[in-house]
């Protein structure tokens, strides 16, 4: 018997990020921590340069007072088609799944940290400590997401638990997955107040991400670019350039 799930082409999940809209507010960062049971980054963790943020917002300065600007950019796992982190894992803890996701299998991971070394985007995080919460704060932990123990690598999953839950429920009810469904969207996308982040299926030509890719990447006038494209990682995250009326096309960051 062929189920509806098997008949249609598989999804290819990806994201489009409009850098022009990012205000640096960190809503995505905290939403991710809440959704994915990321341990609280304590003061010590920052001082040892080991905080865990699956999605982070980087701030770049341009110029100096009084002609000064600050630019913000959210960076998370780019779910590369040629992911440099994958071939170096000796135990196949990280691999590419059929939906274009770069997946981390926690209970295979032995903590060699080769993958983090090889990731040009620095979006893989090692658990240097056993995660801990005061007893009452454990009530907020998401039951759909494993708490990673000490010695394990972790990273952005595009909220795979949300994808799986929505797939399961739509399969049960006989519905198609809907583009932009808030139950399917990653936590950061739902949190973003300015719609900087858009999540969806690149294999569905009607999805917002596909339309944005068509408009911004295929056209020479489009704003689309891939981060560190020259490395040939072919990321599944497309960024849209920051608009600055005073900018010469080649100004640097």
């Amino acid at each position: 018997m062929v189920t509806t799930q098997e008949k249609k082409t598989e999804e290819k999940w990806g994201m489009v990020i409009d850098v022009d809209k990012c205000i640096g507010c960190q809503a995505c960062v905290v939403a991710c921590q809440s959704e994915n049971n990321i341990p609280v980054n304590e003061e010590e963790h920052f001082n040892q340069r080991r905080p865990i943020q699956w999605i982070r917002v980087e701030r770049y300065w341009e110029g100096e007072f009084p002609d000064v600007k600050a630019r913000f950019i959210p960076i998370m796992c780019q779910h590369c088609d040629n992911a440099p982190c994958e071939p170096v894992c000796p135990v196949f803890a990280t691999y590419h799944n059929s939906q274009g996701l770069n997946v981390q299998v926690y209970n295979r991971c032995i903590g060699t940290r080769f993958c983090a070394n090889n990731c040009p985007y620095h979006v893989r995080f090692f658990n240097f400590w056993e995660p801990s919460w005061p007893e009452s704060l454990k009530n907020q932990l998401n039951p759909d997401v494993t708490v990673r123990s000490r010695g394990i690598m972790e990273k952005c999953t595009f909220c795979i638990q949300r994808i799986r839950r929505t797939e399961r429920e739509s399969g049960r009810d006989g519905n198609e997955l809907k583009d932009g469904d808030r139950a399917l969207n990653t936590a950061c996308v739902n949190a973003c107040p300015t719609d900087t982040l858009v999540f969806g299926d690149f294999n569905n030509p009607e999805s917002r991400v596909s339309k944005l890719r068509k408009k911004e990447m295929d056209d020479h006038h489009g704003r689309g670019y891939k981060m560190l494209d020259e490395l040939g990682t072919s990321p599944n995250v497309i960024y849209l350039k920051k608009v600055d009326k005073e900018a010469k096309e080649s100004s640097t960051h």
């Binding site: 905080p51 770049y60 920051k242 900018a247």
Partner: peptide, 22 residues
């Protein structure tokens, strides 16, 4: 948070946040 992750290794002439006049 700044500098907790190493700087991204951008090629000469490449940018993390390229600009466009739109």
């Amino acid at each position: 948070f700044e500098n907790t992750a190493p700087e991204l290794a951008v090629d000469e002439g490449g940018h993390i946040i390229p600009l466009t006049s739109g």
